[in-house]
Design a binder for these strands. Structure first.
Lengths: 366, 366
DNA sequence: TTGAAAGCGCTAACAC
DNA sequence: GTGTTAGCGCTTTCAA
């Protein structure tokens, strides 16, 4: 560790040239077996690990792919946490009645799974994965940093501004993940949010005998939210209903905001159904309804969107749409790998299918 | 992208030498403002992004830290999933009554959070993070590959054999995460599993008026499992009970195995309490008890370990021990960063506190 | 089958 | 304040 052995050390120790060491590692069959063994012996004797930097420089490829997420500032408690300070610390604390984790953390699960899929696919193709999280750095320095170290980059939609994207894509190929397509200059992977919402809305209308659901929207700037709303609107209009007569409420994707809207609805009159643009808010609405003694789905149907774990665990289980998160990650890397092989092919746009999970919260006639 | 601009291109375009370009990027204050502006102008005009490889080679540090996890083969569905094939694909499928995700996936949440913590701390310290997952490669080539590309490596306990660890640690500093300490050659970060289990067992004994709980152990080779058992044993003996008279059952950390053990207990006689070495198995036991009409905690107390989300959502909510997963990740990176600053300091062993969450499943007298 | 040598793109003395 | 230049550790022609 003090000074890691290099090809030169191995070469000297094995009595060969550095070229031969390199050959043994890269094209073993091109080296005479005895020589090869001498080299391999030296390699293991010295504990030689090739420098990725030197390799990357010489090969003009790093073997690394990057994945860049937008950050959740709410979660990033950037407090000091100095574990090396010698404060006295109790080995444990006792807490009574702690609930599940909070909203913000739950919404990160999405990213976690995408990341897993990406890592898996990267591994299959002989790459390693580098991850970065955006933390509101205007100069996008983290992602630029990454761009300099990888052969290609997957960027979650809306994690960086368009001009930064353009900049980076001069160095490495970029795949944009989720959200609507941004121009047609980059490869793009997304899910069938809109189509699924059309179908889900149809389902709800069938359950309510055509009475219009209320809609629980997310923040106005959410690309996913926009796609979901679009699907809702289409289905409503296709059913001959007027979109501007829909009771639309806006939340911020948190459970608390869903609860608040649920309470409003309880106070001002219940719709036949409440379709939420994500699960968290739907769960919040369920909370409010339960507190008010309102039965779901008998008194009001509720649906979510995302397919988080909690949606299956609440009572009644929540009808929702499950995003294929692992597959999203895999698909992104796949598209990236493809791009690396054929740099001049036209940009592609891949749309992955989703699963509509019909559960008790929307099934009036079981 | 076809050919990314280099320092030479920037230098030429700005009419300066490459050294000046480098200076502008690294020590801007050492360059006359006008020159600096010319260079920065060229940089943005050309869309210059420095090569991480070249930098890493010249600086003899990469600015990258690595995190290596053991893999879950069960999850790694390495099927082809070719998103670029032009098959006809439905935008969605409809599924009735799908439940929550499976065991394997749930147990990965642990790693996901550790990873988040690690990424956060790496970012705070100006590093980027590289992730790798072990997939039963005997030659440990993935992790060796990583070792060549990073300045330091965090390795989850038991993800690679000791001799591979020794090998890698000749190149980069290694921090071992979780599990018992492996020798005293590397830095080590863990949690107070044992102490927490002692305390939790005490709590259970208080609830059962001293009647001994049954114990639901995990796989024999789990380091975490061993630490938890050790805590249980200590508390049992401290209470004057004999450890060899405890009813010990073994599962494999899955919900299904917990259910099976729960059913056995129902059939052969219920203990006063069942202490499980993880949450999944405890949840399985709860399933079995619920099916048999057995009341928790009135008829039998149940406790878990880990603090997964589902533990708070089941009925009754499960008493458990929450691991500080984010902090684990942060601590590991922190120790690593510290090691990079002071390479010759003695190896440290950091132990993080846990939270014991007392919930309804173990609170007989509320 | 092996070795010599020319880069890969950058940093950091050192000289001016 | 800026330019010249010698590496950093590896891969890869090109010769031998």
């Amino acid at each position: 560790m003090s000074k890691a052995p290099t090809v030169y050390d191995v070469a000297e120790s094995a009595g060969v040239s550095i070229a031969t060491v390199s050959r043994v590692l890269r094209t073993p069959e091109a080296v005479r077996p005895e020589t090869r063994d001498r080299v391999l012996d030296a390699v293991s004797r010295l504990g030689y690990v090739p420098s990725g930097s030197a390799r990357g420089l010489a090969e003009r490829r790093t073997g690394v792919l990057g994945m860049y997420f937008p950050g959740f500032d709410a979660i990033d408690d950037v407090s000091a946490l100095d574990v090396l300070a010698n404060e006295v610390r109790e080995p444990f604390t006792v807490v009574r009645g702690a609930g599940p984790r909070d909203d913000a953390r739950a919404s990160m699960l999405f990213q976690d799974e995408v990341l897993r899929g990406a890592e898996l696919e990267a591994w299959r193709r002989g790459f390693v994965l580098m991850v970065g999280v955006g933390r509101g750095d205007p100069s996008a320095s983290t992602v630029r940093d990454m761009a300099g170290r990888v052969d290609g980059l997957v960027v979650l939609a809306s994690s960086i501004p368009d001009d930064a994207l353009a900049w980076l894509s001069r160095r490495v190929p970029i795949v944009v993940l989720a959200g609507p397509r941004r121009g047609d200059r980059h490869d793009h992977v997304t899910v069938s949010n809109t189509e699924a919402m059309v179908e889900l809305t149809r389902h709800v209308l069938a359950q309510t005998d055509g009475r219009p659901p209320a809609y629980l929207a997310g923040p106005a700037d959410s690309p996913d939210g926009a796609q979901r709303w679009e699907g809702f609107r289409r289905a409503i209009e296709a059913a001959g209903l007027r979109i501007d007569e829909i009771d639309v409420r806006r939340g911020d994707f948190t459970r608390a905001s869903g609860r608040r809207v649920g309470e409003e609805l309880v106070a001002h009159g219940l719709p036949a159904a409440l379709m939420s643009s994500n699960d968290q808010m739907a769960l919040g609405a369920l909370d409010a309804f339960a507190s008010a003694g309102i039965r779901v789905p008998q008194d009001v149907i509720v649906t979510g969107f995302d397919g988080i774990d909690a949606s299956a665990l609440v009572s009644p289980p929540l009808t929702t749409v499950r995003q294929p998160m692992i597959e999203l990650g895999r698909a992104a890397i796949q598209v990236l790998a493809h791009r690396l092989e054929t740099p001049d092919a036209e940009p592609v746009s891949v749309r992955l299918p989703v699963e509509i999970l019909l559960r008790e919260s929307s099934l009036r006639a079981s």
